[in-house]
């Protein structure tokens, strides 16, 4: 009896799933998910930029409040609204992440192209460099670079940019090498096309999707590492509302039962990172011509 009811409900759920799948094909669904992720990310970014600093001013009358309608994420030991702090912190993280991901992807593109086109020795040198950077854990290199540069915003951005290029460099190098030896490129040369024409029309269009997807997938890493070194105290200065600062400060108050200080900012950080991850992954699916009709 019980089992039968369970089966019926299973069938119902499957029917609902099927009807959704019928209405939208996979490509359309991917597009919808991508747009939703993009909207969530931009709204956090815009929200963080529009909210004024007064909203996170110290207010001792309202300190240590647990989450309520007025303060959805509660307040901290100085009476600052945690929701506003979280949004502002994430905005800062996204900003730092964007800048370092763009720099990192730029380095990767340059080195990948040099490695694949400038001959054997250049290739050996750059491959060695990639191996060198990959053999040391990201976080350690990151801490060293940031520490040498004296921490702060500059230290974090330079540190994150200089540690995240190796894997994308490898991908771009391999991609260029593969296309350069492809039959259709050789044929193109025999059809009277110049090296430059081949580079612009055959190689570059193949790299653009790789580049942008690589860029999007660098974001979550950059943001997470920014938060991580800030949490460890080598990153942004404590008065900035960065997500790493919020998390590391909240650790001291966790034992007094103020769980909301770490919980909501942590959840939001994961949400943002997943958002960028979904965006990058879906972008990859959408630009691949073999998936054009799914």
């Amino acid at each position: 009896m019980n089992l039968g009811r369970k089966n019926i409900s299973m069938i119902k759920i499957n029917n609902i799933k099927l009807s959704i799948q019928k209405k939208l094909n996979r490509r359309q669904r991917t597009l919808v998910i991508t747009i939703v992720a993009a909207i969530v990310l931009t709204s956090i970014l815009v929200g963080g930029l529009l909210i004024s600093d007064q909203r996170i001013a110290t207010n001792f009358e309202q300190k240590n409040l647990s989450p309520s309608i007025e303060h959805p994420f509660g307040t901290d030991w100085l009476g600052r609204d945690m929701f506003v702090r979280t949004i502002k912190g994430l905005t800062l993280s996204i900003g730092v992440g964007t800048l370092s991901a763009v720099i990192s992807a730029g380095i990767a593109l340059t080195l990948g192209l040099l490695s694949a086109t400038m001959g054997k020795w250049m290739d050996r040198f750059i491959t060695w460099l990639v191996d060198l950077f990959l053999s040391v854990p990201h976080l350690i290199t990151l801490i060293l670079i940031s520490f040498v540069l004296g921490g702060g915003m500059k230290g974090v951005i330079v540190g994150v940019s200089l540690t995240h290029w190796p894997s994308l460099t490898r991908i771009i190098r391999a991609e260029v090498m593969q296309i350069r030896s492809a039959e259709y490129v050789q044929i193109s040369r025999k059809l009277g096309r110049t090296r430059k024409w081949v580079a612009i029309h055959h190689i570059l269009p193949h790299l653009i999707p790789q580049f942008f997807v690589g860029l999007m997938l660098l974001f979550p890493h950059a943001i997470l590492h920014e938060a991580a070194i800030t949490f460890l105290g080598f990153g942004l200065s404590p008065h900035k509302p960065a997500i790493g600062i919020i998390l590391s400060e909240s650790m001291r108050y966790l034992s007094t039962g103020m769980w909301w200080l770490a919980f909501f900012p942590g959840i939001f950080l994961i949400m943002i990172i997943r958002g960028f991850d979904i965006l990058g992954e879906n972008l990859r699916l959408l630009v691949d011509p073999h998936n054009a009709h799914n």
């Binding site: 039959e183 269009p205 073999h290």
Partner: peptide, 15 residues
């Protein structure tokens, strides 16, 4: 002198 290969799918840019 133009060469035509056995595998046309390799001889055109898939994009």
């Amino acid at each position: 002198v133009q060469l035509i290969n056995q595998h046309p799918e390799k001889a055109v840019n898939p994009r």
